[in-house]
Amino acid sequence: MKVLYFAWLRERLNRGEDEFDLPQNVTNVDELIDWISANDEAAELAFADKNLIRAAVDEQLVEHDFNIVGAKTVAFFPPMTGG
């Protein structure tokens, strides 16, 4: 699975994307955040406040309980500030 990071998440992680083979017990967005954080100190800090994390699965905005099994791309980013 490809995981993308944007804005200050990308900066704090010092990379724009990861490629992961996820264990079977990681089935939704929230579990993916916990799994990434558990394996990476920078990610643990960057994802510390989950209220500030928005997610998209295969180019669809989703809540953190959204199922990611079989998804190709998950993107994480802060609240949006366009316009």
Binding site: A7, A56, F77, P79, M80, T81, G82, G83
Partner: peptide, 14 residues
């Protein structure tokens, strides 16, 4: 469109 765009279009200002 502007109200939705502000919160739901993936852009970030630096």
């Amino acid at each position: 469109i502007m109200d939705w765009l502000k919160t739901d279009a993936p852009f970030w200002k630096f």
